[in-house]
């Protein structure tokens, strides 16, 4: 059987869940994996709930449906916990990382399925400090690099630099790299 990891990102339009999925795929590709990353949204609307999906595998990926049973869930906006079951399809013990200023213990009871490996990081605050505005997607990649084995910090930083340099000035790219580094250090594991 192929070794397949499926990651589902929950965010709101404009928070960068699509870009984060792409960067994760590029980073994983840099480590030699086969990858597939694609967003799922209605029309592009800032603030509307959206998801993006990433598949990482040692075999070519042919499956193209949306991800119902993720191995890892990343939540960019904790207000989504009020309206969506972000743990839907995540097995007991599955990994979930939430952007919040709360600790894992403080937020666990807000999850439909609390029996998961829960990590939290205040990616919004980190991004305001390092990038100058709330942009939680890249710091969440730093947290993911720390608590999962799908990618390492160095490859993540390289992938972010590659992906963001095409559209953003060097200072902003540098801020994103600092955000990743800080989230990597500050993520709380339950």
């Amino acid at each position: 059987m192929a070794n397949l990891t499926e990651v589902r990102w929950h965010g709101r339009g404009g928070q960068g869940a699509k870009t984060a999925g792409y960067v994760l795929a590029i980073a994983a590709a840099g480590q030699g994996w086969n990858v597939q990353a694609f967003p799922e949204y209605g029309a592009e609307r800032r603030g509307a709930p959206m998801r993006s999906y990433v598949r990482i595998s040692d075999a070519p990926i042919r499956l193209r449906s949306s991800i119902d049973n993720p191995d890892i869930v990343v939540v960019l906006d904790s207000s989504l916990l009020e309206t969506e079951n972000v743990t839907d399809g995540l097995a007991d013990g599955g990994l979930i990382i939430i952007n919040t200023d709360k600790s894992p213990d403080e937020i666990r009871q807000e999850l439909a399925n609390p029996n998961v490996e829960l990590c939290t990081v205040d990616a919004s605050a980190i991004s305001v400090d390092t990038i100058g505005r709330e942009m939680p997607n890249t710091p969440m990649l730093g947290a993911l690099a720390k608590v999962s084995d799908v990618l390492d910090l160095e490859t993540t930083l390289k992938a972010v630099e590659k992906q963001l340099s095409e559209k953003l000035p060097p200072a902003v790219v540098e801020g994103n790299k600092q955000a990743i580094q800080r989230a990597y250090e500050e993520v709380q594991v339950a």
Binding site: K18, G21, Y22, A25, I26, A29, N34, V35, Q36, A37, F38, P39, E40, I61, R64
Partner: peptide
């Protein structure tokens, strides 16, 4: 559309 046009792949 989206399924391939917006999918990052090797």
């Amino acid at each position: 559309g989206f399924l391939v046009s917006h999918s990052y792949e090797m």
